[in-house]
Structures are given as structure tokens and as C-alpha cells.
Design a protein around this nucleic acid. Structure first.
Lengths: 98, 98
DNA sequence: TTGGCACATGCCCATATGGGTATATAATTG
DNA sequence: CAATTATATACCCATATGGGCATGTGCCAA
């Protein structure tokens, strides 16, 4: 997922399934390389395939991204103002204990 | 950030700044390698340093993780039930238009 | 059934990456 | 000032990674 190309692929799939050739055009990369990236994404489970005649339609499986989301979210408090009020409250509680 | 060791470092810093040697112990890796990882993290801006005598205290800068968070969050709808109700509403609106 | 698509796989190569060891530098202590 | 501690940097090396090219395989159309 650190790979720019792979993120490009996911971004391209965000609103529906697409055949490989579409992605080849989007990435401006040769077909074999795209297939290779797709293989990796498949193995990680972030995309899924469906055979359709001689095409293979790839689609997202965002579920596989949840762990990443969960991980970064642990750090959200370090930038989000959403937690400022909460922090204040906790601070008050701490004071009351003393 | 794809690097497990680097995530370990961030996890170790999550509740406060720490000198390099602490991280060396946490990672169970030699000091130079840890310093190298820290350098990378520093260059990306996800950690910051502060000199303290002959120690260097590293701390998180979660702000640099926001882009990652924002990116994965775009995919949240593909797994989160949070959007199910919203999807239903949009579906209804669509029907009304017709 | 033969030719042409759409796609996957195998192989090669250059570069990037991460770990290991030795060493340099700055601050501290005696 | 010498020795020691904390950290960074420089090199080296093995492996991983990504792209390019050639080729294999399944499916469809004529």
C-alpha cells in the first residue's frame, strides 16, 4: 500500500470494478507490471477478481484497509482538534481526584 | 510507514518522548539501525527531535500521519456500517427523482 | 479451428532497502 | 584533559522490489 502505483489502482477502483486494460491506461504502465501489482493487491486481499469472458474485472475490498485505518486512527488525537475538549475534561477529572 | 520497525517506533513513542536507547531496547535492534529508521521518520516529518544533554529525545508528530488517515478514510464506506443508513437515504432520494 | 484479445507468468536487470560493523562527533564525568 | 556515554554516519552486503520483455493460457469471433 506504500506503493504509489498500487494506491493509484485502488483509487481507480474506488467507484466500481474495472478490467485490467482500464488500469493499464490509468497507470500508463505496461500491462504485465499492472498485473503484477494486481497480484500483490489480490494476495493482500485488498482487491478481488471476477472473470467476465476474456476480461478480469477487479474490484475493491476496502475491508482489508480497515487495519491500516485503525492503526492511524490511534494517532488521531495527536492532530485532531476533535480530542481537545475531551482532553480538557480528562484534565479536570484528574484535578478533582487530588 | 510500511516498515514494521518504524511502526514499532511510532507505537513506542505514542505516550511521550523517548531517547534513542529506549527504542533500541524496544526494537531489539542495533543502535545504528534504529538511528537510521529515526532518520527516515524524521525526514518524513512523523517524528521530531529535541536535544537533551547527550541524549536526543524523539517524539511523535502525528500531524504527518493525517494524509494517510485521510486517504484510507476515503475507503471507509466500503467496510463501515456507519454509511449503511446514508446509502439507504441516498437510494431513496434517487428513487424520488424518477 | 484459427487468429486475435485480455490477461498472467517467467526471467532479467538496475536500484532500493534493511541489517551489520566500524567509526566519527558531541556531551558528560572524573 | 582523558575516558565514557549517547547518538549519528559511512560502508559493505544480501535480499527485495519494480520495471521491461518475451511468452504462456483462456476465451471469443470469424
Amino acid at each position: 500500500m506504500a506503493e504509489p502505483r498500487r494506491r493509484q489502482i485502488l483509487d481507480a477502483l474506488i467507484d466500481g470494478e474495472r478490467p485490467v486494460n482500464d488500469l493499464v491506461r490509468v497507470l500508463g504502465l505496461a500491462q504485465p507490471q499492472v498485473s503484477k501489482h494486481l497480484r500483490v493487491l489480490r494476495e493482500v486481499g485488498v482487491v478481488e477478481v471476477r472473470d467476465d469472458g476474456r476480461q478480469r474485472l477487479y474490484r475493491l475490498n476496502g475491508h482489508a484497509l480497515k487495519p491500516i485505518h485503525d492503526w492511524v486512527t490511534r494517532y488521531e488525537r495527536t492532530w485532531s482538534e476533535r480530542f481537545d475538549r475531551l482532553d480538557a475534561v480528562l484534565e479536570e477529572l484528574k484535578d478533582e481526584e487530588m
